[in-house]
Design a protein around this nucleic acid. Structure first.
Length: 787
DNA sequence: GCGCAGCCCATTTTT
DNA sequence: TGGGCTGCGC
């Protein structure tokens, strides 16, 4: 756990951090809110002038320091609430910050109009100056799904093959540019070849043009339009620069280039910008976050002070040591030394098991045994790398009748029926919202098939007018006839009537009216889909959500920017979520299953990500371990049922990076000890490891194995009289009768990892196969299929 | 316009 | 393995 900042080119950072910045002589420094802060936190609160980087390790009381700082600025009258810009990434973080400041300073917090997410604040600014980028102030904010659909239209309109060039692909590329703050004019010409044979930038332009016609902005636009406005309207920028005398940014390691530029522009006048973050917890690189922003802070803001919060109040020494040891394998980091004065307790557990089912079973056994010892289910969490890993746990929970909750998953406002209902409201608000029109014009079916929609689309595109207008013209000039015409006409009349009703009815009543009259509710009532009852419930939820707003506008803005919805978790449930979802949370007991190569780090990362992606995976592991307060239990399975096939993967390289002194290995005797078919298989995959350069000569899990393994009673729990893990293994072994191979010499076979080959030698279940592409290898027969 | 069979694919997801 | 999408047939 050495504090060895490997970035030796930036020595001044650590040096600075060592220095104690003189505490300002300030009467407020004796204020009650400073009590109980440690030295670093106190400094972070009182050092208000000039740029400041607060490097806050996991569990070091970051939020406390940050909210106290704001309270201090306000109560010292350094600024009015309206002069403070405080940005977060999530609505949840913004809400929490507001609450906690409120506890310190009371109602004054209500005046903090510029406390919010990057996107909500950028949206506020953009609404004020929309005309400067060709929008009207009531522009629609598009979500990801709208973006993709619009991209698809742009691709089709450009006459490209929509199978080769997908909407999703174009949207991803445009997003990437926007994350980097690039308008079509600023994109490097070479990047035109990233998509559609050199037409990428043209498509980006076309997409932006469509957005203007639709009077819409996507998430990325909120920031990029702000930048455009600031850069070409000095007076507007100066206004905000003057207004924001203090700035505070949470989770700075997650900012993308556009957000960074936005902050830098705004901070130029007062330069009182405080960025809080932890480079070791940067896990959103794949979404455009640039760890570089935090690594480079000092250069960007000359004269910056750096404060490290390193005293951890969350975890035991072993957990901290494990996390610190692991993360020290990363090259690009500022380096911190987390420490704690908590008592040493249980070491970090590492357990190897036979397969995924057994992993779920053993973790659930642990959970039940903790529960019997009086621990609440709320206090335990299982964190996974990817959601496919959740199924095994959910199945096990259901079998045992253990209450659990999954955090994440499809969100309320992203569900089909919610989005449909919202599309109706959007269309009622703005008849120009073609994306809403496309979505619900024929849902429920009104006989408006692809042909009619096609005609409307082309007519509208040719004249650059909204589709509703195009529809009306097509009806009037007789280009549409028959049933299609009548149905379309009736639909438009309905929409217009609803729009008129906006004046007379509350948003809630209007929503109910629309869902009723449009036939949308009936559409689900008549549906035979097993999902229909749930969808109807969700529609009621939408009505409920709308009723909390005074205007349709307010509700729609909420929907666009606050994609979350209170689902109201019950108490007494085990938490199940991804590492990403767990960031910022903490639990007494944390289970980290699936530490195998290909699962964690993920296969995708191994295949194409390179070093930086691997480092991000490692940070993810760091985030996972540091969620644990008392007990952290890592496991890996020798075999895993994945995509309908059995796969065997070596333990994660991250396991070998954990410091030996702080971990304890519990491996089953059957797995590593006795010579059984199972252990042979393990020996075999160990051989494969050597092939692939994975296994260092003396890895942790091999040491565990050499030690003969410990008993399968785990972490001091009483082992069940008949260990449930036996069932799982015996079942698997039973399929392979010992001694006799089902394959013959010369037979063609297939192996998951090595592909096709021919058996050259057999010895029991150990077969030697000459693979077509991978050469000759010894493998166990249960990894082979007849080829 | 709908239903079904076959096909392809398969991380993480703050706004 | 299984969910989501597509293309075809009614």
């Amino acid at each position: 756990m050495s504090n060895k900042p490997s970035n030796s080119h930036k020595p001044s950072l650590s040096q600075r951090a060592m220095q104690t910045v003189p505490r300002p002589e300030n009467t407020a420094s004796s204020a009650a809110y400073l009590e109980g802060l440690n030295d670093a936190q106190r400094e972070a609160v009182l050092n208000t002038q000039g740029p400041l980087l607060m490097l806050a390790g996991a569990g070091t009381g970051k939020t406390r320091a940050l909210t106290t700082r704001l309270a201090h600025i306000l109560s010292s009258r350094l600024a009015w609430p309206s002069q403070i810009l405080a940005v977060t990434f999530t609505n949840k973080a913004a809400r929490e910050m507001k609450q906690r400041i409120g506890k310190l300073i009371g109602d004054e917090v209500e005046g903090m109009r510029w406390l919010g997410t990057f996107h909500s604040i950028a949206a506020q600014i953009l609404r004020r100056h929309a005309e400067l980028v060709g929008l009207k102030s009531n522009f629609t904010i598009l979500d990801t799904d709208d973006q993709i659909r619009l991209c698809k239209q742009v691709i089709v309109d450009a006459g490209l093959d929509e199978k080769r060039w997908t909407g999703r692909g174009l949207a991803a590329m445009i997003d990437d540019w926007k994350n980097r703050g690039l308008t079509p004019e600023k994109v490097n010409k070479d990047e035109a070849w990233l998509f559609a044979d050199g037409q990428a930038i043209e498509l980006y332009k076309a997409y932006q043009g469509r957005l203007i016609t639709l009077n819409a902005a996507d998430f990325g636009d909120l920031l990029v339009h702000n930048l455009t406005i600031f850069q070409s309207n000095g007076d507007v920028l100066a206004n905000y620069q003057t207004r924001f005398s203090y700035m505070l940014v949470d989770e700075y390691q997650d900012t993308n280039v556009a957000q960074y530029l936005w902050l830098r522009l705004l901070a130029q006048k007062h330069k009182n910008i405080c960025c809080v973050g932890d480079d070791d917890q940067s896990i959103y690189g794949w979404r455009g976050a640039e760890v570089e922003n935090i690594l480079r802070f000092e250069k960007d803001f000359p004269g910056a002070d750096i404060i490290r919060l390193e005293q951890n109040y969350r975890s035991t020494p072993s957990i901290l040591a494990a996390a610190s040891g692991l993360i020290s394998a990363n090259q690009d980091r500022l380096g911190k030394t987390l420490w704690t004065n908590r008592e040493e307790d249980e070491k970090v557990n590492i357990r190897g098991v036979w397969d995924g089912e057994e992993e779920a079973r053993s973790i659930c056994d642990d959970i039940e045994s903790e529960q019997q010892k009086g621990r609440s289910l709320n206090d335990m969490a299982i964190l996974v790398r990817a959601s496919f890993q959740m199924r095994a746990f959910e199945e096990r929970f259901n079998t045992l009748g253990l209450a659990y909750r999954v955090v994440g998953g499809p969100r309320f406002y992203e569900r089909e029926e919610t989005r449909d209902a919202i599309a109706y409201l959007r269309l009622v608000r703005s008849h120009a919202d073609d994306l809403a029109f496309d979505r619900i014009a024929n849902k429920p079916a009104r006989g408006l098939g692809g042909k009619t929609m096609q005609t409307i689309h082309q007519y509208a595109r040719a004249r650059n007018i909204p589709k509703i207008m195009a529809s009306k013209m097509l009806i009037e000039n007789g280009e549409l006839t028959g049933a299609g015409k009548n149905k379309l006409s009736a639909f438009i009349q309905m929409v217009e009537r609803w729009s008129a009703e906006t004046q007379n009815q509350s948003p809630r009543d209007l929503t109910e009216l629309i869902l009723e009259e449009s036939g949308y509710t009936d559409y689900w009532k008549n549906s035979k889909s097993p999902k229909a009852p749930g969808k109807l419930d969700n529609l009621k939820e939408v009505v409920q959500a709308v009723s909390e707003y005074e205007t349709l506008e307010a509700f729609l803005d909420h929907v666009a920017l606050v994609a979350e919805h209170n689902e109201g978790f019950a108490d007494g449930q085990v938490w199940l979520m991804t590492y990403h979802a767990a960031k910022g949370l903490e639990f007494p007991v944390v289970f980290l299953p699936g530490w195998e190569e290909g699962v964690f780090p993920s296969q995708r990362t191994l295949d194409e990500g390179g070093l930086s992606a691997l480092e991000e995976e490692r940070r993810l592991a760091y985030v996972g371990i540091t969620r644990a307060e008392e007990s952290c239990r890592i496991s890996f399975a020798a075999n895993r049922h994945k995509y309908g096939r059995w796969e065997s993967a070596p333990p994660s390289r991250f396991i070998d990076e954990l410091p030996e002194d702080h971990v304890e290995i519990y491996s089953e005797s059957g797995l590593y000890g006795n010579r059984t078919a199972a252990s042979d298989t393990l020996l075999n995959f160990e051989a494969e490891l050597v092939d692939q350069d994975y296994a260092a000569s003396n890895t942790i899990w091999q040491r565990g194995k050499k030690a003969g393994g410990k008993s399968s009673s785990y972490a001091g729990h009483t082992a069940p009289s008949s260990p449930p893990l036996i069932e799982g293994r015996s079942k698997t072994i039973a399929s392979q009768a010992p001694g006799q191979s089902q394959f013959n010499k010369g037979q063609r076979v297939f192996h998951q990892k090595f592909g096709y080959g021919k058996i050259t030698h057999s010895e029991g279940q150990k077969l030697t196969v000459a693979f077509d592409h991978s050469g000759e290898k010894k493998v166990m027969e249960n990894y082979l299929e007849a080829g």
